[in-house]
Amino acid sequence: MADHAVPTLPSRDLDATAAFYKKLGFVEQYRDAGWLIMSRGDLTLEFFPHPDLDPSTSDHQANLRVDDLDALHAAFAESGVPLATIGIPRLTPIETQQWGARAAFLIDLDGTMLRLIEN
């Protein structure tokens, strides 16, 4: 296995987090009372319990850099996540960002922002 980094993100409820990410096409790889690992192809996210987290003030975030942003975005949109610019959870439209890359943003149930960035 090549060297890699994996985001570790908060979850108010590991059951709810697992259900949300399963709808996005992630598969549960590991779980116990204090940890959850979900993966979708080469994308892996790990979650730890944070029951007191306030999603409206969460500043947790991670970047997911992908080769086919359009396909990933379409799959996430088909999962039922609202396509919107406000609200939790939500998926924003793909746009060319001020830094020049095409990207969209997924805000999960816990207010964590995943930047979906095209390689």
Rank of each mutant, 00 (worst) to 15 (best):
R12K: 10
D13I: 00
D13V: 00
D13S: 03
L14Y: 05
D15A: 12
A19I: 05
A19Y: 02
F20K: 06
K22L: 06
K22R: 14
K23R: 15
L24P: 04
F26Y: 10
V27Y: 09
Q29S: 10
Y30E: 15
R31P: 09
W35P: 08
I37C: 12
I37F: 07
M38I: 02
M38E: 03
S39D: 04
S39G: 05
G41K: 01
L45P: 03
P49D: 00
H50A: 07
H50D: 15
D52L: 14
L53S: 03
P55S: 01
S58E: 11
D59F: 09
D59Y: 14
H60V: 06
H60A: 15
Q61H: 14
A62H: 07
N63F: 11
L64N: 06
R65I: 02
R65N: 11
V66W: 02
V66Q: 02
A71Q: 09
A71K: 13
H73T: 05
F76Q: 04
A84V: 07
G87V: 05
P89I: 08
R90K: 14
L91V: 04
T92K: 02
P93I: 03
I94L: 06
E95N: 08
T96Y: 06
Q97N: 08
W99K: 10
A101D: 15
F105Q: 12
L109W: 15
L109H: 14
G111R: 11
